[in-house]
């Protein structure tokens, strides 16, 4: 697959603070790439460097396999941090200005306004917009030039649940068109719902990079409950048990590789025990994220 963005050894220091530390990353065409990390982990600084508004201290990156010029940025639609527009201009005029800078055709304006459902408010001044409308206008402006890549930095920050759902639908719609999207967020649920790949950043260091589908692969955790007095002992006998833990009235069994909940169920049945509760826990991104963040600094996964 074609590489859209390739980052190597990218570093940014502010005085003694290292905001981004030797970052290596690749984003391929068509990926919806989640860029995760707690607040202040260097996500926005990284995106700022990629968009030419922050000068890297060291390292380099390339868009579309070519060295970067300001013309490159016209092929990328980006919203960093908050939406930024001229408050005294209407939504329409703001987009006209962006279109002029990007060299986007004029008829795209009506189209993107429609896509983010702002057509009815397009002639009102930007400063009268609600936060959700501002975010939507920012996405519209990022879409103006039919970009190959879309960069969204916390697009749902500060929105109410309805606004979040709206933005999420817009992102899904755009992703369905085959666009590459880089989505920085600390909302894991959001990333799990829309992203195909994700990377985790902590204090400027890349902790993990992989596919969202791979989350939850590997060892399985099964929740079991049964009306049997020595259930704990019986479960310990099962050859697939890696470890077990009691949580409320249930036992959490961590299974060895190659074993699944079916094997456990059959084992219990053979022992004459019938499970009253049997549930395979799928590892959520949130759980994995927290695990990754708890890892010590030197254990950097590739």
């Amino acid at each position: 697959m074609e590489t859209v963005l390739s980052i190597s050894q990218l570093t940014k220091t502010f005085g003694r603070i290292t905001a981004v530390n030797k970052l290596d990353l690749e984003v391929k065409r068509g990926q919806v790439f989640g860029f995760l990390g707690p607040n202040g982990s260097g996500k926005t600084t990284t995106l700022g460097m990629l968009m030419g508004v922050v000068n890297p201290t060291a390292g380099n990156f390339s868009w579309f396999g070519k060295p970067v010029t300001h013309g490159t940025r016209k092929k990328i639609g980006a919203v960093l941090e908050h939406p930024i527009f001229y408050p005294y201009l209407s939504g329409q005029k703001n987009l006209e200005l962006t279109a002029l800078i990007k060299g986007a055709p004029h008829h795209h304006i009506a189209h993107v306004l429609e896509a983010v459902e702002l057509t009815s408010r397009k002639d009102d001044k930007y400063k009268t917009y609600s936060l959700g409308m501002k975010q939507r206008l920012a996405i519209a402006s990022a879409l103006l030039n039919d970009p190959i890549v879309l960069i969204l930095d916390e697009p749902t920050n500060g929105l109410d649940p309805m606004g979040i759902a709206e933005i999420r639908n817009i992102i899904k719609k755009i992703a369905a068109d085959g666009k590459t999207i880089i989505l920085a967020s600390h909302l894991l649920d959001e990333v799990q719902k829309v992203c195909s790949h994700f990377a985790v950043l902590r204090r400027g260091t890349l902790m993990h990079c992989g596919a969202v589908d791979d989350v939850g692969k590997g060892e399985e955790i099964v929740e079991v409950a049964a009306y049997h007095d020595d259930l704990a002992l019986v479960l310990q006998e099962f050859s697939g048990t890696l470890s077990q833990k009691k949580e409320n009235s249930n036992y959490l069994i961590r299974l060895k590789e190659g074993f699944n909940s079916q094997d456990l169920n059959r084992f219990l049945f053979d022992k004459g025990i019938i499970a009253a509760h049997l549930l395979t826990q799928k590892k959520s991104l949130e759980k994995q994220f927290l695990e990754i963040l708890e890892e010590p600094d030197h254990a950097i996964k590739k």
Binding site: H70, I84, I101, G103
Partner: peptide
């Protein structure tokens, strides 16, 4: 100075101006 106050200079550069 409006461009700095509204931070629009930053957005102009992100949008592809040098």
């Amino acid at each position: 100075t409006n461009e700095y106050q509204y931070r629009t200079i930053r957005q102009n550069i992100i949008d592809g101006m040098s």
